[in-house]
């Protein structure tokens, strides 16, 4: 597909240099210069358009962060972190239970998503071309693209319905299932970055395959895997849809795993769609805290990648 700029034939203005250029040659050279000028202009305009596109893409982010800080900061106080939601009409109140609930859910999800994801990632990296690897790799992408609401109704049908009630662990399962493909993919990529020579060196020392994989390869790839896991945690920490019919939300303090549990994104959703002004203000504060958590995790993850010490000796 070596298509060449056909619309603008590459012409050299050689005519100018000839001492006795004819009139028509001169005219041709003139035309060439004119199209060249036009092409240069188009080039400059398009470069400008690209800059504009980048600016336009970042604009919403800046607006969202600006509004979050402006609206959320005023409702943010110590009370927000240590108090429970207040009844309608009563001023104040916080989201202590939602913050703790989110931490509980993230912990539950990690307990499922990290081992399965890292294990599957190890398998994919070590059995790269086996049939199961090809199928799993593709289905992991499919799972990654599955709408979160579908994951929510699955967890409801699979756990909430048979158990007869909303529960923290059903939400943990839904979120954990969402983590699996993210952790799998990043684990596989990070393990593939470990040079083959390192694996061979360990095998040549008399390490078993299991030991080579776990103590040398996995250990070497660990910083990258931690980064990938953090990114996955950051993503599921803000998920709302899978929690609607599983964790359900809870106005009261509860960290029991078989009871409905509150979560920051759920509380934000309920408050944002409520008709009460003070609840809406709290929704902004909650959103500010949530995005703070997500951004801090994302930035730590990014920093961890960069600080990762070199893989090879070279």
């Amino acid at each position: 597909m070596t298509s060449v700029p056909g619309s603008a034939p590459p012409t050299s203005p050689a005519g100018r240099h000839k001492p006795h250029a004819t009139r028509s040659q001169r005219a041709a050279a003139e035309r060439t210069m004119r199209t060249l000028r036009r092409r240069r202009l188009i080039n400059r305009v398009m470069v400008g358009v690209m800059y504009l596109a980048a600016l336009l893409a970042i604009l919403p982010l800046i607006l969202i962060l600006f509004h979050l800080v402006r609206e959320g900061a005023s409702s943010l106080s110590l009370d927000f972190f240590i108090r429970m939601p207040a009844p309608v009409g009563e001023a104040g109140g916080g989201m202590a239970n939602a913050i703790v609930g989110t931490l509980v859910l993230v912990g539950l999800a990690s307990a499922i998503g990290l081992p399965v994801g890292i294990g599957a990632g190890l398998y994919l990296a070590e059995h790269r071309r086996s049939r199961l690897a090809l199928v799993t790799r593709f289905l992991s992408d499919v799972l990654n693209g599955l709408p979160s609401i579908v994951m929510g109704i699955f967890a409801w049908q699979f756990l909430v319905r048979p158990m007869g009630g909303f529960s923290a662990y059903s939400a943990g399962v839904a979120l954990g299932a969402m983590m699996i493909p993210l952790v799998t993919r990043s684990t596989e990529e990070m393990i593939r970055l470990v040079p083959v020579s390192l694996r061979e060196a360990a095998l040549a020392l008399g390490f078993s395959r299991a030991r080579t994989s776990l103590t040398i390869v996995l250990r070497t790839a660990l910083p990258g895997i931690v980064t990938g896991s953090l990114v996955a945690v950051a993503r599921i920490a803000g998920e709302t849809a899978p929690l609607l019919f599983t964790a359900f939300g809870n106005q009261f303090w509860s960290i029991a795993l078989d009871e409905p549990i509150d979560a920051l994104p759920l509380r934000i959703f309920y408050y944002a769609t409520s008709p009460y002004d003070d609840w809406r203000a709290l929704a902004w504060a909650g959103a500010l805290v949530l995005i703070g958590i997500v951004l801090v995790i994302s930035i730590i993850a990014r920093y961890a990648t960069r600080a990762r010490h070199g893989l090879g000796g070279d």
Binding site: S197, A201, A204, L311, G312, G313
Partner: peptide, 8 residues
């Protein structure tokens, strides 16, 4: 091996 392979 050809290239040094210290465990990093």
């Amino acid at each position: 091996f050809q290239r040094p392979t210290p465990f990093p």
